[in-house]
Design a protein around this nucleic acid. Structure first.
Lengths: 238, 238
DNA sequence: AAATTTAACTTGTAAATACAAGTGCTAAAA
DNA sequence: TTTTAGCACTTGTATTTACAAGTTAAATTT
């Protein structure tokens, strides 16, 4: 019972470094401590340290260069989660406001559904919520989210105003996005969508159906997104 | 001079397994030989074998499961390269026909350009090509590609009809896509685009600007894509 | 002073080894 | 017959050690 901890060492180091990068302790463009330093400081061996660094590379937090070191990159991109790039100004997180149109509630899955659902997902029902998100006080996207109602205590009662759904899942439930699949289309805005996004009916709108895989088996997040791409673009790293 | 080979062992194994998965030797859903078997067969140690498998997981070719094995996944997705999902029928590679509108030719970069270019990219000029791609004999997307003219001998004279640009880069020049960034919009089809894609002017069209990073420093691939999403969707894994 | 070499760093690759933990089948027990 | 326990397999984590290769700057030579 050296420490009674079940989470692996390399993951602990990953979390520490991730936090430091996000908080700005290691600023963009600077070098992380060398692998040998990290070994010494944290009492680990190099393969273990490298395992943590590999994960940071995979998730886009650092970039390694042989002979030089590990360069810290700008932190934003959650894995594969598209972010917005604006035309007018750089969009910090502060500029994105969120309005909940439909608070999280338990509902049955729609039939038919865009993606195939497993048995356990089907019988559990889903947590349903709708949000409208604003940039510079203009509505930019409207999204519908469905999450299987599996072992997520107190989920419905949490506040999602101006918070990232994914940060809550990560911090409160240790749920991480591992990947996903999505379908994109350009469609004409229906009457409902056009009024929500404050654009004329029939204007082109980006339509996205996506399924996100998590580290919890059988727990996938399903989203439908309508995006007004007149002044902004969907921006993605991969 | 044991073998005079410079490419690392784990990469060789990666290539072997990748080829076998793509050629169907290991079919979708089946299990790869266990790590210990691979060690024995290829004369490697487990960390080295695991390095190859980690890369296969990263690129989406397999999915590992503790206690069970490495499950082969459907091969398609080049890393982050969006593929098409059709409404009518499953789209095999055979159904996608390519017409070259503008054969590869050396041109200067447009000014201004969507993405920032490095000095060496700028002075090298770019290889420019336009293609129109068909599904079931209907035009589905029109793409413009620009590649810096850096150390790509005989590139302009290669045939791109019905071949993947990326497969040629990979097989002939050992250039692999390592990642990228892209911007997406929904726009109204201009007169030119609508006539190319055989749709009414003003119909919604998916517009994509993308930059793909490769394993060769300073060699990025830039594409502009117009996609008719009436009958098909852009489909992506990440 | 300028060019070259060397040395001291960095990350990359690879081996040999050990035990932990999850899965699934088999054999023993109820 | 059903349940349980164990065993043999799988991948996951971790240590230790060694050398290769790229980068940078200091030291040496020209």
């Amino acid at each position: 019972m050296t420490d009674g901890n079940k989470i692996p060492q390399y993951k602990k180091l990953y979390e520490i470094l991730r936090k430091h990068i996000l908080s700005g302790t290691y600023s963009e463009g600077s070098l992380l401590p060398s692998e040998n330093e990290l070994c010494a400081v944290h009492g680990l061996t190099r393969p273990t340290v490298r395992q943590a660094l590999d994960a940071l590379v995979r998730d886009g937090f650092i970039q390694k260069k042989q002979g030089k070191g590990s360069i810290v990159r700008k932190p934003p991109q959650d894995i594969g989660i598209l972010s917005i790039s604006g035309t007018a100004s750089a969009i910090g997180r502060g500029y994105l406001k969120t309005q909940i149109l439909q608070k999280p509630s338990i509902q049955p899955w729609p039939q038919p559904f865009t993606f195939d659902l497993s048995e356990i997902e089907l019988v559990s029902g889903c947590i349903y919520m709708e949000r409208l998100r604003f940039v510079d006080d203009q509505p930019v996207f409207y999204d519908i989210n469905r999450i299987p109602n599996i072992n997520l205590p107190r989920f419905s009662s949490r506040s999602f105003e101006n918070k990232s759904l994914f940060e809550i899942l990560r911090n409160q439930y240790q749920i991480e996005i591992k990947g996903g699949e999505q379908k994109l289309k350009a469609i004409k805005a229906s009457r409902q969508i056009s009024s929500l996004l404050n654009i004329p009916e029939g204007e082109p709108v980006l339509y996205i159906e996506r399924k996100l895989y998590t580290n919890r088996e059988e727990l996938n997040i399903y989203s439908t997104i309508y995006f007004n791409s007149e002044k902004h673009s969907i921006y993605g790293n991969f």
